[in-house]
Design a protein around this nucleic acid. Structure first.
Lengths: 80, 80
DNA sequence: TACACTATGTATAACCT
DNA sequence: TAGGTTATACATAGTGT
């Protein structure tokens, strides 16, 4: 999406990488929000930037509730 | 995105909701993957469908590692 | 350094099979 | 019901300020 087709590999230029991170993180959170509302599902999204800053999204329920729901699954139902 | 502008609210028709869920879940996971690679960041994504089925994504690290990183944050750094 | 713009690539709603 | 197609809306890479 954008002026040019982008290869999916690490962006080496630090400034470009940070700008892309900021834009795409916002886009990802928006998409997660839309999925949770449109389809009425629980979504939890955790992002750590390379500087260690945390970004979170969760739908109606809190992050903690959704993580607990995951953690409490029997191990054989956690695989992807 | 699509033939018509979509309101962001729960899709009432069950079939449509499931179709949209399947398509958008795939799109969301793809975007999460791209963010993790392009920007070299940790992303964890947990989705429970309305029937309780689990979808997961995480980048290089395992979901468990990323969740642990979140859970181990001091409480005052967990806010969104 | 951070926003705003816009040309272009991408995701997807409705349709089709 | 699931998978493929396509017209259209949306996200965003590069750019400008």
């Amino acid at each position: 999406m954008g002026r040019v087709k982008l290869q999916i590999k690490r962006i080496e230029n630090t400034t470009n990488r940070q700008v892309t991170f900021s834009k795409r993180r916002n886009g990802l959170i928006k998409k997660a929000y839309e999925l949770s509302v449109l389809c009425d599902v629980d979504v939890a999204l955790i992002i750590f930037s390379s500087s260690g800053r945390l970004s979170l999204f969760s739908g109606n329920k809190s992050i903690e509730e959704i993580l607990a729901r995951y953690i409490n699954l029997p191990a054989n139902r956690r695989g992807r």
